[in-house]
Design a protein around this nucleic acid. Structure first.
Length: 558
RNA sequence: GCUCCUAUAGUGUAGUCCGGUUAAGCAUUUUGGCUUCUCAAGCCAAAGACUCGGGUUCAAAUCCCGAUGGGAGCACCA
């Protein structure tokens, strides 16, 4: 073993390392460290005295198996295993609030939960967490469903938290009747102040009878803001969430599905606790900012003698320079700085789709992030790298030139040319009609000098007789492929004009990037018109792009 | 302010629970090379990390204590 280690590390080995290796494989020797370490030292020093050649000779003669290269360690696929999970019995859930458009953060929560259900052959629930009528809209509800469907996430059960209003009231009664919750009629500011100062208010000392009466009055007499139901937690607790949190409050807004049927609504903690328990959820994964609520949720369920799910937490996912929060995005839309929630600069699912990011890439990417609680501010290029692998195999290769310059080629021997749609995979060919008039990219035109040769890809070499803004040249029969600049081109007579949109980082630090959307004026082949909307293309020597419409393409990535 | 969470290469992570089989693995990035009628993909190679300071131990990324950096909560939002 010493010999092997020495061989792997330039002829030198160390006794500590060898000791570690031996103890690692042979646990029974661990209490005999004192006895074996001098023996090891001796072996190690004798090995170190040998020259590399002698070591190698020794290995070849006595331990040839060492020379076989080690196999690479396989990366663990997917998420870490769950501790108390039984095959076939795991139930997870994704509970979004329909109060906005779904984004990459939703994708992470949904994928982690669904992945675990899949891993253990269990069930996965989509539960629209809609207990705040003021915030929720059908539009968002629909957008979330569309987004999840696009991601390819399948649900076994779809429900709304608001389906179970009667159950919340039942449990509310139970908590109030048993004195584990009380009605508080203090002012909002006082409640907040008492929380900070860890002081109980007078309402918490009222008797059960009064609480029951007030609980009834919440349905009739009290106005929104007048009264709330609070859980009897611990006003002295270090965890501020436990300082008598809200369980129910009055909201008079019109709920997007239930209208004005109810006016007392459960808070998030109440709703999640009860729902997860009655839905049979065994494992609930949420993002890290909810971590402090774990204690509360357990306490509520204990107070009601209900089954508790295991709770896990993961870090929020955000991209550098791409804000997720509505608070930031909404004003940008209002000021016209971004067009809408599907603006390709945004991290919403709709925007990612328009930009040409594939759901499989998002899945791989999210799984690669793991289940850590450390903050993740991933650079977008990590996602791009995954996406490129999915997109490359079936993206049609097309020619596109931007900032077009004219090139006239004399003595062309043909009037059309056939070009394969993909360099490796069989995706057919396209026939391009040509005459002597071409467009080439402005950047390429700049670099072309008089008297040199260039090669028009798929066509042939041209010897340049005039450079500058309008170029001219002669066709060269049988020209060399190597050592010539190979450039893409578009025939002038059939050139199709498109707008090329290049999304860039929206924010540099806190500063809005005024140049975050670059638009190029470009020409492409008429073949572009034959492609389906949404198809991914690779514009040769430019990058992967998604066809957004007949006259607009969005740059995906290099 | 109080409380909680967190810290591995430029970036994202594996390993940490249960110290040794890993002088830290993978991916991405960057740089070289091969291949190629694309600056793409593919293949090969190189570069690069355990936040800091103590302690325990034959042995610490892993356990303990302290410091520092980052994030979150202290809503009648979820």
């Amino acid at each position: 073993m010493a010999l092997q280690n020495a061989f792997e590390h330039e002829g030198e080995t160390r006794d500590k390392i060898i000791l570690g290796k031996i103890l690692g494989t042979k646990a029974e020797l661990r209490n005999k460290v004192k006895e074996i370490s001098p023996v090891i030292s001796e072996i190690v020093s004798s090995v170190n005295q040998l020259s590399s050649e002698e070591q190698e000779k020794e290995i070849k003669e006595n331990f040839p198996e060492i020379l076989i290269p080690k196999e690479k360690i396989e990366e663990r696929e997917g998420l870490p295993e769950l501790k108390d999970a039984e095959q076939g019995k795991v139930i997870t859930r994704f509970p979004p609030e329909p109060n906005g458009y779904p984004h990459i953060g939703h994708a992470k929560a949904a994928m982690i939960n669904s992945e675990y259900a899949k891993m253990y052959g269990g069930k996965f629930i989509l539960r629209m967490d809609d207990t705040n009528p003021e915030a929720e809209r059908m539009e968002y509800h629909a957008a979330i469903k569309v987004g999840l469907e696009w991601l390819g996430i399948k649900f076994d059960i779809v429900k709304n938290t608001s389906d179970d209003m009667e159950i919340f009231y039942e449990k509310g009664n139970e908590l109030i009747n048993s004195g584990k919750a009380y009605v508080c009629t203090c002012k909002r500011e006082d409640i907040s102040k008492n929380r900070r100062e860890r002081k109980a208010c007078k309402c918490s000392r009222e008797d059960t009878e009064k609480n029951i009466k007030n609980w009834e009055k919440m349905n009739t007499k009290f106005k929104p803001g007048d009264a709330i139901v609070r859980f009897r937690g611990d006003m002295k607790a270090d965890n501020a969430v436990m300082r008598d949190p809200v369980l129910f409050r009055i909201i008079e807004g019109k709920h997007y599905t239930l209208g004005e049927k109810y006016r007392i609504w459960p808070s998030y903690d109440m709703a999640v606790a009860i729902e997860d328990s009655i839905d049979g959820v065994t494992h609930a994964f949420r993002s890290k900012e909810f971590e402090l609520r774990k204690e509360l949720i357990d306490a509520i369920l204990d107070a009601l003698n209900m089954r508790k799910p295991a709770q896990g937490f993961f870090s929020r996912l955000e991209f550098k320079g791409m804000p997720i929060s509505k608070r930031i995005i909404k004003p940008l839309i209002e000021e016209g700085k971004v067009s809408w929630y599907d603006d390709p600069r945004l991290p919403t699912l709709e925007a990612l789709r328009r930009r040409g990011i594939k759901p499989e890439a998002i899945r791989k990417f999210i799984m690669s992030l793991g289940l850590t609680k450390a903050n993740t501010l991933a650079p977008f290029d990590a996602l791009e790298a995954f996406n490129r692998k999915f997109v490359d195999a079936d993206s049609v290769r097309l020619f596109m030139v931007n900032n077009a310059k004219k090139l006239t080629v004399r003595n062309l021997p043909m009037s059309s040319v056939e070009i394969p749609n993909h360099p490796i995979n069989d995706m057919g060919k396209r026939k391009i009609e040509i005459d002597e008039n071409f467009y080439i990219s402005g950047d390429d035109a700049l670099n072309i000098k008089e008297g040199t040769q260039i090669r028009l890809l798929g066509l042939g070499n041209v010897s340049i007789t005039k450079s500058g803004i309008e170029l001219e040249g002669d066709f060269v029969e049988g020209g060399e492929k190597s050592d010539v600049a190979k450039i893409q081109w578009v025939p002038q007579k059939t050139a199709h004009r498109i707008k090329m949109i290049i999304p860039k980082t929206l924010f540099n630090g806190d500063e809005f990037n005024e140049d975050s959307l670059e638009e190029l004026d470009a020409y492409t082949e008429p073949q572009y018109l034959q492609l389906k909307e949404g198809e991914e293309i690779q514009f040769v020597r430019f990058g992967y792009c998604r066809k957004d419409s007949q006259n607009q393409a969005i740059f995906t990535h290099k």
